[in-house]
């Protein structure tokens, strides 16, 4: 139920706050510092986790298209996003993942956006409880807590969201559907589906963005 409350809050917030005056649309590069984001990262939606990330913008394209009486203004961003995620399968596993995403985000007049991203990274899966080790004769030689195994992880994600302004500070609310593939898991592959809800904010501190190349069409 909590998830639906969060989801409804997202939608309401976006609808109420996305009404931006199209004659004065701010750039989505809000300030000189790299945006930070924090999100709920639910494996199969309900197996909970958290994701922390930082965007590094690489390229921005601005387009203005005049259609009848309206001007359609779009901004597109190519970004790279290193991120850290941690999620749990209750009573079985805890998973730590380090990824880098390369994404493409498209904003409209109202600063609502859609995005697609590809990711590559490393996933470390920790066994819950003690792990007992069998030797080549099948005897148990000992046990240890916190045992883990590592996998190569690739993924694709689709997302949407919008920017709202609270006391003139931009806050982005977004949701993303992630599909990850872990190899070599057991004797094959392991696909995972993850739903993400998060916020992105513009700090006045941290890592400074290098100058982002901007193309205006």
């Amino acid at each position: 139920m909590r998830f639906f409350i969060v989801l409804i809050s997202f939608c309401t917030a976006l609808t109420l706050n996305g009404q931006t005056d199209s004659s004065n649309i701010p750039s989505v590069l809000f300030n000189d510092y790299s945006p930070l984001s924090a999100s709920y990262y639910g494996n199969l939606l309900f197996q909970p986790g958290i994701k922390l990330a930082m965007d590094r913008n690489l390229l921005k394209i601005e387009e203005n298209k005049v259609k009848k009486r309206k001007t359609k203004h779009t901004q597109k961003l190519l970004y790279i996003q290193p991120n850290f995620t941690f999620y749990v399968h209750p009573k079985t596993l805890a998973v730590l993942q380090l990824n880098t995403e390369l994404g493409w985000r498209r904003y409209n007049n109202r600063l609502l956006f859609t995005e697609v991203a590809l990711s590559i990274g490393y996933s470390r899966r920790f066994n819950k409880g003690e792990t007992y080790f069998a030797d080549s004769a099948g005897n148990i030689t000992g046990s240890k807590k916190g045992t883990s195994r590592g996998y190569f992880a690739t993924g694709i994600s689709l997302g949407c969201g919008g920017v709202i302004f609270i006391k003139e500070k931009p806050i982005t609310l977004y949701s993303k559907l992630n599909a990850n593939l872990l190899t070599a898991h057991n004797a094959g592959l392991l696909p995972e589906g993850i739903l993400e809800f998060g916020i992105r904010f513009q700090p006045n501190f941290g890592l400074k963005n290098t100058t982002v190349k901007t193309i205006i069409k």
Binding site: K91, T92, G129, E130, T131, Y132, A134, G138, T147, N186
Partner: peptide, 10 residues
């Protein structure tokens, strides 16, 4: 919950 590690499998 415990795990048993045996020939590549947990």
């Amino acid at each position: 919950t415990i795990y048993v590690r045996s020939t590549g499998a947990d």
